[in-house]
């Protein structure tokens, strides 16, 4: 039995069904991301787990105990909010120790745990500061320490990185993942950023219109999207339409369906193992460093493809006529 079970969860605000029959089983120690555009219901699911919203129906169980009806302060859950929600009138150490103080832990234990947490987030010397004296990234790390200090059963992260600037965002997300692994804490992470979700999750739930479209590992979500929405929302995509007979460049694929290929599945020139060859003309060249992203017009569509940078081979010039090849096994059928 899974550690955290969410079954047939529903939430309506008036006539508006925000979450529809949401099901999810999370194993102990797993890192799950809820990914989707704004308004897809991901935050509402998280807030129902935390207890800020009451489900219209359905169950949320942790370790077999149903949480529905319990107040947020009885759930033993840790949560990190999008905007730094540190208490401005308390020092960093008092913020981190807040949960333990509420539980009535002895002073010595609080001090020890606070020191441990501050060391964990790499800010051992900032215990005496007030939140306004910290940078955004530091505040969010303190918020993480505050959520973890009372040893919650589940950690909820509500877009914790979206208020930070790009560089801090990447380093902090790696740090969050490392701390999560170290403590083995079951975590649900809400984000609208697909790159973020792909890079740190054990599994991803892609949500759309209140429904969980697909649940799977980042590898599965990216390579085998089960719906058109997932395919489009996660990663870049080139879409090809077959002709009336179901052929693409002479290869029989199936009539009346569209097929998609990731940029890295397309090759410049005829690569070994490919069975589809498309004539194309280069229209844009973006040099990104290790990768060069090319845009080309092929088979009546504008496609993009990635090639690795090789110092001895300069990229093709704009306007060059080339051939693109791909393997029909790499094509993703779209529903």
């Amino acid at each position: 039995m899974a550690f955290l079970e969410i079954s047939h969860l529903e939430k309506s605000f008036g006539a508006n069904r925000v979450v529809k029959d949401f099901n999810l089983d999370v194993d102990k120690g797993e890192f799950i991301s809820l990914l989707g555009p704004s308004g897809c219901g991901k935050t509402t699911v998280l807030r129902m787990v935390a207890g800020f919203e009451n489900p219209s129906s359905g169950a949320i169980r942790i370790g077999g105990t149903d949480l529905v009806g319990k107040r947020p302060n009885q759930r033993n859950i840790g949560m990190v909010f999008q905007a730094y929600a540190l208490f401005p009138n308390l020092t960093v150490a008092e913020n981190v120790g807040f949960g333990l103080k509420i539980k009535g832990a002895p002073r010595a234990e609080i001090d020890r745990r606070v020191a441990e947490m501050l060391a964990l987030i790499g800010l051992p010397d900032l215990g005496g500061r007030y939140p306004f004296q910290l940078s955004g990234g530091q505040q969010q790390r303190v918020a993480l320490a505050r959520a973890l200090a009372p040893k919650p059963q589940v950690l909820l992260l509500d877009e914790p990185l979206s208020a930070l600037d790009a560089k801090v965002r990447v380093s902090l997300r790696n740090e969050i993942r490392a701390i999560q692994r170290e403590l083995g804490i079951t975590t649900i992470f809400v984000t609208h950023d697909q790159e973020e979700a792909l890079s740190i999750s054990d599994r991803i739930v892609v949500m759309n219109g209140g429904i969980a479209d697909q649940v799977g590992t980042p590898f599965e979500i990216y390579n085998r999207p089960s719906t058109r929405f997932v395919a489009h929302f996660v990663g870049q995509l080139n879409v090809f339409s077959t002709d009336g007979a179901g052929n693409l460049a002479g290869v029989q694929l199936g009539a009346g369906r569209d097929f998609a290929a990731r940029p890295e599945a397309l090759h410049l020139g005829r690569a070994p193992g490919t069975d589809i060859v498309l004539p194309a003309r280069i229209s844009e060249v973006h040099f990104l460093g290790s990768v060069i992203r090319l845009t080309a017009d092929a088979a009546g569509a504008r496609v993009s493809l990635d090639t690795f940078n090789r110092p001895d081979v300069p990229p093709p010039a704009i306007g060059t006529d080339v051939e693109l090849s791909l393997s029909s096994r790499d094509l993703i059928p779209l529903g």
């Binding site: 935390a50 840790g78 208490f87 009138n89 509420i102």
Partner: peptide, 24 residues
Amino acid sequence: EWREAAEVLGATGTQYWRMIALPI
């Protein structure tokens, strides 16, 4: 968020008012 953060950390409404809101 202050109220919600206090709540998930186990604080009651009274504790939130006494330790966070009123001092602010």
